[in-house]
């Protein structure tokens, strides 16, 4: 039953620019792990590599389910979604001209998820009642916070076991950041999800995190075994806490 997501020595980039220089990390089932790092250190690129949107030049990424290893490198995003991994992309990336409900149903495009789409839709509306109220409204007309909720709910529609979340706090008011992060935690507990979240808001992210990694210039410079340990590291103090 135990499953984990393993990233081993991944090297990746865009054309001539190398972004990741051998990143390794592991996320165990049921954990909430955060990726800390300021802009341009490779957090999004790493998540895109896991999702199959960027192909690593070297290294391994695999899921281990019941001791069986399943490589993700070389697979298409569709196949990776089928394996139970979904990404909530940075900047929400909704379908602005489609309704809230259509956005959600697109989250359940894969066959496995489609079968339970009605049930999952009901769950999503329970978790985010505001989306139920606005189900016929165009996604582009929602407020920033509502859009982020929709982006998370849409990812949930694919019934993932591993949820990758890329900077959910971008562009949100401080009060909403707290709210959204709390909802990520709620979802994680409710569905037994395994969460890997890239985030810059240290205080909010560590509130829900079990562990974390600090990424600087495409390398993991520190691995915090607990949220408290993260706060004590010098780099984190320097970059995030202003100490």
């Amino acid at each position: 039953m135990a499953s984990r997501l393993v990233v081993q020595e991944v090297v990746a980039g865009y054309g001539a620019v190398q972004v990741l220089h051998g990143v390794s990390l592991t996320v165990h089932e049921g954990e909430t792990v955060i990726l800390l790092g300021t802009n341009g250190n490779g957090k999004s690129t790493l998540l895109k590599c896991i999702m199959g949107l960027v192909r690593p030049a070297a290294g391994h990424i695999f899921l281990e389910v019941d001791g069986r290893r399943c490589d993700l490198v070389g697979r298409t995003p569709e196949e990776i979604v089928d394996l139970g991994v979904t990404l909530v992309p940075e900047g929400r990336r909704l379908f602005p001209k489609l309704s809230v409900e259509e956005n959600l149903l697109l989250g359940a495009y894969r066959r496995e998820a489609r079968r339970d789409a009605d049930t999952t839709l009901r769950y999503c509306f329970e978790l985010f009642p505001v989306l139920a109220q606005r189900r016929r409204q165009l996604a582009g007309s929602l407020s920033g916070g509502e859009q982020q909720m929709l982006a998370i709910a849409r990812a949930l529609m694919s019934r993932p076991r591993f949820l990758l979340v890329d900077e959910p706090s971008v562009g949100l008011a401080p009060l909403l950041v707290r709210h959204v992060i709390t909802q990520v935690k709620e979802m994680q507990q409710r569905y037994g999800l395994t969460v890997l979240m890239a985030e810059q808001n240290f205080h909010q992210a560590t509130r829900i995190a079990d562990r974390g990694y600090v990424l600087v210039e495409g390398r993991v410079v520190f691995e915090g075994a607990s949220a408290a340990a993260l706060g004590e590291h010098e780099l984190v103090k320097k970059y995030y806490l202003g100490l």
Partner: peptide, 23 residues
């Protein structure tokens, strides 16, 4: 059909569609 919704997703945001497993 579902095909129409998938195409609309590509039009609105191709990368997001890909993230969701839309082929």
């Amino acid at each position: 059909s579902r095909l129409g919704r998938g195409l609309a997703a590509i039009r609105d945001n191709e990368e997001a569609a890909e993230c969701l497993g839309v082929p």
